[in-house]
């Protein structure tokens, strides 16, 4: 079954969507929508490093993404808003990444490949990395769910219940870093960022509890991956963007239905 490249692509898409869904909810709730972009840009620096140091792309991207996650977490709350911090980190990481790439004489890397990835070229090993990473991230989030939710709602409330919101924030940013790192080579950083935000935003329309929103987001992400790849096959369109298009259409449809249901915006 795994011999078929379409099957492997679909499974890779579902894996990323399932890890991205609960993370995306926290990203939306905490208003850190730029985190996906910032980590993605940082990962470009990781790609350059891994080529220079002859590491695997996965390790390079993971190291840089983790460093960025920890830097953002330790700087947060020192007079900067999250979006400002992410902006600083994203642009400087990208700039350093591009400068670092220029030092690599004799190697040409196609940065576009890492922005958009190539989900149709997913190998069995890639699938293993994606599903391993996704399982780790989902397990981490399920384990810390209540504590993460309490920290997101109100830090003092978390402290009073014996939860350390700083630690929970670190767990969240590290999960995001892992997700970006496992998915960068195959699906590209733009697709990860899209799969973080759009399904979670679409799920908000119908959900009444945080858990329902996370599960709905996973379903919307999965549906987008399946329908997007099917569409890409039928209409001969680029695979990654087609997945994002389906997610965006689902977002629009759910919102239109939501408006009509309530009668008001």
């Amino acid at each position: 079954m795994l011999d078929d490249f379409m099957t492997r692509a679909t499974l890779a898409g579902i894996g990323v969507a399932c890890a991205a869904a609960p993370l995306g909810c926290f990203v939306v709730w905490r208003r850190m929508a730029y985190f996906g972009d910032a980590t993605a840009h940082a990962a470009i620096l990781g790609v350059a490093l891994s080529l220079a140091l002859e590491l695997s792309i996965f390790s390079g991207a993971l190291i840089v993404a983790l460093i960025m996650a920890m830097t953002v977490t330790s700087l947060a709350g020192r007079g900067y808003a999250m979006d400002t911090l992410l902006g600083v980190m994203a642009h400087s990481a990208l700039a350093f990444g591009l400068v670092a790439v220029s030092f690599l004489s004799g190697i040409r890397i196609d940065l576009m490949a890492y922005l958009f990835g190539d989900i149709l070229a997913v190998s069995r090993t890639d699938l293993l990395v994606i599903w391993g990473g996704a399982a780790l991230v989902v397990a981490l989030i399920v384990w810390r769910w209540s504590a993460l939710l309490a920290s997101t709602l109100n830090e003092d409330l978390a402290y009073a219940s014996g939860i350390d919101p700083k630690r929970e924030q670190l767990i969240l940013t590290m999960s995001l870093a892992i997700t970006v790192a496992v998915a960068i080579k195959v699906v590209g950083v733009l697709l990860i960022a899209a799969l973080l935000i759009i399904p979670a935003a679409a799920a908000r329309v119908t959900a009444r509890t945080p858990e329902a929103m996370a599960v709905t987001a996973a379903a919307i992400g999965t549906l987008s991956a399946i329908a997007g790849l099917r569409g890409a096959y039928v209409f001969d369109t680029p695979a990654g963007p087609s997945i994002v298009c389906v997610a965006a259409i689902l977002f629009a449809v759910l919102n239109l239905k939501g408006w009509r249901g309530k009668g008001t915006a």
Binding site: W29, R31, L149, L153, L157, I163, A201, R208, T209, P210
Partner: peptide, 16 residues
């Protein structure tokens, strides 16, 4: 509570 975070009173009471 951010508008993007759906949560019922019952769920909020059982937060931790």
């Amino acid at each position: 509570i951010d508008q993007t975070l759906p949560i019922t009173v019952a769920r909020f009471l059982r937060l931790t």
